[in-house]
């Protein structure tokens, strides 16, 4: 019965499978393989995208935020916020556990940009370092034009970025910031924390 079926399916009329059937099968296999290879190549080709550098921020937003964070923890003889990858910390966390702050960043950064353009006639990133410091102090103290700020207020926005910059700089590297334990090295703290196992003498650790 099963023999019959196979023969029947293969379209053979007599004994065995005809050469035509074998050829057909080979053709189908070849075609299939070609389609498989082609499709994979196509997928990998069309799927190829420039790596989006950030999950949440646009490149312009990130550029501004990087400049703000670098003001908060600037580079001197040791790493600053940029070196430590603070932007990646913030970007990753507000795409995750801190998602509730997304709107504050989007609106806050927009207000921040407008503030600098209005007060200094120049984008923040292009100001000299000292001028950036002044601009940031203005916002920290809530002294920038208030009509450019809604929710978050300028003070609230500053406090948010300050807190997240500290987290990114001092937190565990696995969250995206504190690259190569930059801040721990700065403070002379052992990293990763190492402690040998207990050894005992007469039941007491030595």
């Amino acid at each position: 019965m099963s023999q019959d079926l196979i023969v029947g399916i293969a379209g053979a009329n007599g004994d065995g499978v005809s050469r035509r059937t074998v050829l057909k099968l080979v053709a189908v296999v070849a075609l299939g393989a070609a389609v498989g290879v082609g499709a994979s190549a196509g997928i990998t080709h069309w799927g190829r995208t420039a790596p989006p550098p950030y999950r949440f921020f646009s490149e312009a937003e990130a550029k501004l935020l990087i400049a703000i964070c670098e003001q908060i923890i600037p580079r001197d003889d040791t790493s600053g916020a940029t070196d430590a990858g603070v932007i990646y910390y913030i970007d990753r966390q507000i795409s995750g556990p801190l998602a509730r702050h997304q709107q504050s960043y989007r609106l806050g950064l927009a207000s921040f940009r407008k503030t600098c353009l209005q007060v200094y006639k120049t984008p923040f990133e292009e100001l000299a370092f000292e001028q950036q410091t002044d601009a940031l102090r203005l916002i920290e103290e809530g002294n920038a034009p208030n009509d450019l700020w809604g929710d978050p207020s300028q003070k609230a926005f500053f406090d948010l970025v300050l807190d997240h910059t500290r987290q990114g700089f001092y937190g565990s590297p696995r969250h995206g910031g504190n690259r190569d334990y930059a801040s721990y090295r700065m403070l002379g703290l052992a990293y990763p924390n190492l402690i040998g196992q207990n050894r005992y003498a007469n039941g007491r650790p030595i």
Partner: peptide, 28 residues
């Protein structure tokens, strides 16, 4: 089914033997 199996095999072979820049590493 032969066709589909061949497709699969072809695809896997592409990823197995291909240059990584065209396969795995084409994803950012």
């Amino acid at each position: 089914s032969v066709f589909l199996l061949a497709c699969g095999a072809g695809s896997l072979a592409w990823f197995h033997f291909g240059n990584p820049t065209n396969t795995c590493a084409s994803c950012h």
